[in-house]
Write a protein that binds this DNA or RNA. Structure first.
Lengths: 138, 138
DNA sequence: TATTGTTATACTCTATAACTATA
DNA sequence: TATAGTTATAGAGTATAACAATA
């Protein structure tokens, strides 16, 4: 059976990204959050009083799509908002959210360690530069 | 603004894969097919009389999800099916499908060239091995 | 029984458009 | 006018369950 895609970097890139995303999702499952939610909580934890729009820009999530995610995180008691200028909301983690963010941080680090470990040692220093180079604006 | 994800290989991997997938999608748009459809047509072109189930295994698409894709490709006159053993169908490209598959092939190759070109020259030989290493079974 | 094709369904992510509220 | 948040909607990809047909 001829499967040309196994030699195509574009296909291999997608396959690697999907498999690692699924792996991280499985690791986060016991914490009750999905990868996107965990990323948002991490960003708020590191940037107190960040706004929804800023999160969207940093994670490449559109405002319209971020809205239901944020509402869910607020409803579950991980995030609280205070009024900023204009319609802007200042977001921060609740105590509950901070505890969760710490557990998420551990899972994120474990995942990055697994990914680095999968790369041959002599190429590890090149991994991040190579992945940055593979990104395109378009 | 602290964006830790720009140093996380997992995030960079997903970002690179998404951007390249979008780029390829844009290049295929004039041909009137999406990336998934183009991949299926390529596989049928290279493996005459392949079955749906085999395509699914090679591209990691489940049978249930492949069904509407295949029906659409048949309805548009790119693919025809003949009866195989059991419920198996032998798939092959129509004349129309073969012409399209040739154009797709050119776009696929152009995309792979672009991706290779984005990688620093001294790392190009390591790209495919590295991407293969980044894949995980999970 | 195992495999293939099929249908239905649901969830996630993504994309667009349009609306409001405020600087 | 520009930005932030909101709502509705649609498409694409993915997941599970269940069913029919055939080896």
């Amino acid at each position: 059976m001829d499967n040309p895609f196994l030699n195509y970097p574009g296909y291999l890139l997608r396959r690697a990204a999907n498999s690692r995303l699924a792996q991280l999702g499985t690791c986060l499952e016991p914490l009750g959050v999905r990868v996107t939610e965990a990323s948002i909580l991490t960003l708020i934890g590191r940037n107190q009083d960040i706004s929804q729009a800023e999160i969207g820009r940093l994670l490449s999530i559109q405002r319209a799509n971020l809205n239901p995610l944020m509402r869910s995180l607020r409803d579950r008691g991980f995030v609280e908002a205070s009024q900023g200028p204009g319609r802007t909301q200042h977001l921060r983690l609740t105590e509950h959210g901070r505890e969760l963010a710490m557990q998420i941080q551990r899972e994120f680090e474990a995942q990055e360690d697994r990914i680095f470990a999968a790369v041959p040692e002599h190429l590890r220093a090149e991994l991040v530069p190579m992945l940055r180079a593979l990104h395109c604006e378009e």
